[in-house]
Amino acid sequence: MHELSICQSLIKQITSVALECSAQRVTSITVAIGALSGVEAELLKNAYPIASAGTVAENAELIIEALPVRVKCNQCGSESDALPNKLVCKKCGDWRTTLLSGDELMLMSVELEKIQETKVIH
């Protein structure tokens, strides 16, 4: 279950983005995951509350976008959707293909709530 350590690394990145932007709270996080990334979206979601507890990202909404597996055929050049364990060209059937998308494991964006300026009255 490596999703917990990946989630902890995600929290580290989010914390530093929030700090750079002087944000008070992170309200949502969007990550993109391909089926060939080796990370299960559900497990990442389960790990998130544990990894984010006590951090600026606690209670933030975790949005996971699943990216499709797509390949380009090195022989006939056509692009097609594929299954994680069947990366062959749909058009000509050749196995020599290049992965266009599907192995991503990316933090796309974070939504931040900024600190409100407060006036100090003496």
Partner: peptide
């Protein structure tokens, strides 16, 4: 899916959306 205007680029009023584009395994 990723470029501004794509379906992953979301902004909500009153909050700031920051695009990061880092691998989750960056460190």
């Amino acid at each position: 899916l990723i470029r501004p205007g794509g379906k992953l680029e979301k902004t909500e009023s009153g909050k700031e959306a920051v695009t990061v584009l880092h691998s989750l395994l960056h460190e």
